[in-house]
Amino acid sequence: MITLSLKKIAEITKGQLYGKDLFIDNIVIDTNKIIPGCLFIALIGKKFDAHIFIDDAIKKGCSSIIIQKKIICHISYILVENTSIALGQIASWIRKQTYAQVLAITGSCGKTSVKEMTASILRQTGSTISTIDNLNNKIGVPMTLLQLTKNHKYAVVELGANKPGEITYTSNITKPEIILINNIQYAHLQGFKSLLGVSRAKSEIFSGLKSNGTVIINLDSNHLSQWKKEIKQRNILYFSIKKKNIAIFFLVILKLIYMALLLQCIHHVEK
């Protein structure tokens, strides 16, 4: 993680800093992962409120906290309107400070396997981070991006969703140069209602793609025609299994590496 002062974090999150300014190089959301000097963010979910673990976090050695409920505390803290949004804001800021080329992957199934394969390949050419396990939601994606430093060349980030709007949020935080939609299948229909709903939700990944970005699409995807407007005037690579073009998938990965290297070279030239 890039080292940040609490003052800077308060500015990024539009929060109010109470206590002295400190420098932070580690952010955690789980008290089981507290290390001395870290910043603990007290998230609130549908079934939990991490504010109840603040005392435990302090006892374990965190130096500061981000909260959305004002408390009496003897360590520095930042009061924000929403701690989950604050986490995303910090991750988004860090992503913008790095030189890493980012690949975002979504799809109904196979995301994690493709993520692992791609990250493994990219690690042969440069320092690479990737989503841990399948932590691909509005909390997991920011936590992945927090790992970035200015020494990383690549980031492979998995974007998942259980309902509409989630990938729009994570894609705009991630701001990928390259996106891959692995497939569109019957999954999470409770949240998306239909296969068309799944397709529309996955297409939200286009929202964060950089203007000169590249799209990698499975030609076998259901409701592919729904994406025509979003992928218009984009750099597009296709792959297909049904069309007997299995080998093209591996060509896509090779082209991905080439494009990432090329983008990296261009960036350094512009500097």
Rank of each mutant, 00 (worst) to 15 (best):
M143R: 13
E81V: 15
W93N: 06
M1G: 14
K7H: 05
I94A: 00
L43Q: 03
I65H: 04
R234A: 02
D21Y: 06
K243F: 04
S84T: 14
K14T: 05
K150P: 00
G61W: 05
I85A: 15
L135N: 13
Y169E: 01
L122C: 03
Q101M: 12
G15H: 01
C73Y: 03
S108Y: 11
L262A: 15
K7T: 11
K59G: 09
N137I: 04
D30P: 07
S127A: 08
L180K: 06
L145K: 01
V157L: 12
I52T: 15
I178T: 04
I179N: 01
T106L: 10
R200L: 07
N26R: 13
N134K: 12
A100W: 08
K70G: 12
Y186L: 12
E230P: 03
N183E: 06
E204Q: 08
K175P: 08
I41C: 03
T106I: 09
I173K: 03
N183M: 12
F53W: 09
L145F: 05
V156S: 05
K244G: 07
C109W: 11
N162I: 09
R234F: 06
I75G: 09
H188G: 11
K244L: 00
T3I: 05
D133M: 00
I121H: 07
T128I: 08
V114P: 09
